[in-house]
C-alpha cells in the first residue's frame, strides 16, 4: 500500500441557518474517507448527497464543524489563510463547469501562470512549465495567448486540468469534471485523467453522480446518500455488486445502452424495489 495522503475522519459540515437563530443545515454527517498516493477514490451520489461538499471541505471551501481532515498527518480542516496558500501546491481542484471556472478576461497563459507567479517562479521557468502542461493535457502549444471562450467545453476542461497540475500537486479534487461534456469528449477527458495519474502518481478525489464514470476511473469508490457514506470499498465490487440497498437502487436505476440488457435491468430493478419495499 502506498503512502496515506488524505485521511478524512468523521467530518461534519454545517452551514449556518438563515436569519436569527435559524437552524443550521448539516450537509455532511461524520464522514470518513482516505486517499493514498497515486490512487483515485470515487465519490458517487445524487444531488444533495453531500459529495461536492466533501470535496469542498478538503479544499477548505466548506465550514468543517467537527472531525479532522488529515493531509500527510496534519489537520487542515481549519488551516489559516497562510497555511492554505502553502497547501495550494499539494491540493488542487478541477471544477464541473468549464465555462465558469476560467476567468473569461484572462488569456490561457495568464490563467496557467497565475499559481506559478504567486510562488515567484522565474519567467523562463514558468513558460517552460506551461509548455510542458500543454503537452501533458494535449493542447496545441499556441493555445497560450487565446481567451477561454475560444475553446470548446472539452478543451476548457483540459485548460482547467493544466491549471490544477501547474504546481505538481499530490492530490486533485475533481468535482464532476466530465458531467458537462459530450459523451465522446467525456471518454477522452477520462482517459487523460488516467494517463496523467499513471505518469505523475497524483491522487484524485473524484466526485461524480455517474456510477459508470466513477467505476471507470476509480480504484476505490465511496457511495454517498443524504450526507453520509453508505458504502465504501473496492471500485469494481461497489459498482458491480453493490451491497447497500441505496447503492443497489442507484445501480439498477442507470439505464444501459443495450435494449435487451436494459429490459433485463428494468425487470431486476422492479424486483429489487418490490423486495426493498416489502
Amino acid at each position: 500500500m502506498s503512502e496515506l495522503l488524505l485521511d478524512v475522519q468523521n467530518v461534519t459540515v454545517e452551514y449556518p441557518g438563515h436569519g436569527f437563530r435559524g437552524n443550521p443545515f448539516r450537509a455532511l454527517h461524520s464522514v470518513s474517507v482516505d486517499v493514498h498516493r497515486g490512487e483515485c477514490v470515487g465519490l458517487v451520489g445524487e444531488s444533495g448527497s453531500g459529495k461536492t461538499t466533501l470535496g469542498r471541505a478538503v479544499l477548505g471551501l466548506a465550514p468543517v464543524t467537527d472531525g479532522q481532515v488529515l493531509f500527510r498527518g496534519e489537520d487542515i480542516a481549519h488551516a489559516s489563510r497562510t497555511d492554505r496558500r502553502r497547501l495550494a501546491s499539494d491540493i488542487q481542484v478541477v471544477f464541473q463547469d468549464p465555462y465558469t471556472s476560467l476567468n473569461p478576461s484572462l488569456t490561457v497563459e495568464q490563467i496557467l501562470s497565475e499559481p506559478l507567479d504567486v510562488r515567484k517562479v522565474p519567467r523562463s521557468e514558468s513558460s517552460k512549465r506551461i509548455k510542458d502542461l500543454f503537452d501533458m493535457v494535449r493542447l496545441p502549444a499556441d493555445a497560450g495567448n487565446r481567451l477561454p471562450r475560444e475553446f470548446s467545453g472539452g478543451q476548457r476542461q483540459r485548460i482547467a486540468i493544466a491549471r490544477a497540475l501547474a504546481l505538481q500537486p499530490a492530490l486533485i479534487v475533481c468535482d464532476e469534471p466530465v458531467s458537462a461534456l459530450d459523451l465522446s469528449t467525456q471518454a477522452r477527458v477520462l482517459e487523460l485523467f488516467k494517463d496523467i495519474q499513471e505518469q505523475t502518481q497524483v491522487a484524485y478525489l473524484f466526485v461524480s453522480h455517474d456510477l459508470e464514470v466513477v467505476r471507470h476511473i476509480s480504484h476505490r469508490v465511496a457511495v454517498m446518500y443524504r450526507g453520509e457514506i453508505v458504502e465504501f470499498g473496492d471500485g469494481d465490487q461497489v459498482t458491480s455488486r453493490p451491497q447497500h440497498p441505496y447503492t443497489q437502487r442507484l445501480f439498477f436505476a442507470a439505464p444501459v445502452a443495450d435494449p435487451k440488457a436494459q429490459a433485463r435491468r428494468r425487470e431486476e430493478r422492479r424486483q429489487l424495489l418490490a423486495a426493498q419495499n416489502a
Binding site: 477548505g60 471551501l61 495550494a88 464541473q96 499559481p115
Partner: peptide
C-alpha cells in the same frame, strides 16, 4: 464564481 474559488485553491492571496 468558480474561477475565484479556483484562484483561492491556487494559493492566491485576497489582495491578488
Amino acid at each position: 464564481e468558480l474561477y475565484v474559488d479556483a484562484a483561492r485553491v491556487s494559493g492566491l492571496g485576497d489582495g491578488r
